[in-house]
Design a protein around this nucleic acid. Sequence first.
DNA 1: TACTCTGTTGAATA
DNA 2: TTATTCAACAGAGT
Length: 268
Amino acid sequence: MPELAEVEYYRKRWDCGIGAVIHAVHLHPAKRVFRGTSTSAIRKALPGSVLLGSEAQGKQMLFRFSNGIWLGLHLGMTGELRTAKPGLPPGKHDHLILYQETKALVFSDPRQFGRVRFHLGAAPPRWWLDLPVPLTSKQFTRKLMAAFLQHHNKLSLKGALLLQEGFPGLGNWMADEILWRARLAPRTLTGQLTSAELGNLWRAIRFVCREAIRSLSRGYSAFPAGWLFHQRWDRRGRCPRHGRPLSRETVGGRTSAWCRACQPARKQ
DNA sequence: TACTCTGTTGAATA
DNA sequence: TTATTCAACAGAGT
């Protein structure tokens, strides 16, 4: 379920491989996760290099290796990173495995909506440098958010929150959590928001992003009680505030869960 | 068995 | 130009 917080969670799983040499690489060139990427370049470059570190930004991850090698990873909908024993035989959906002396770094993704990118150079790849401002950074101001929403003022709020160029890292459940916390209905048009509502939305984004990352860093069980998160997967889920059954409908192309009492629809 | 649903995103279409 | 729809894919659920 890789949204911003989970991406960070998975990224750290390869931390234990930092400082060690990659001595072999496993991959299948035909797999969709390598679309647009030269697998022969990966095969040629990586063996002999050392994993130096990694970063996550939104749903994107970038792994840095010695010899000016960079690997960009996106988890799509079902991707995950893990480590395994050094002799691990590749499983059906293990698309990329980096073998080290004492462990194997594994990228797997059954549905292959994820992606692997390769870059060679002293500086990070262009696409990484051009990523939008992170939601947890100082640069993500209320003003910046309001300007983005104004640019898409015909879109539902739910649809807008899913646009990665404005809200990098948000996915379906985080968007629902944010709207519930800000007491805004998913179908509200972005152009209709009052200044106070914009403030609530901005604060909810900051809060949900920070808290999700913080609690996930301690494992999935640490997710805070009282979040919509715990209810939204269940068809009979209820609003954590007062126990009303949640509404579930497609908004902005995605299944959305919200409470009609706390998040009333706008009068037209 | 057959059909529906799913945490993403980018290409095609309106 | 921007918003919506659909396909890419695989597995789980009904």
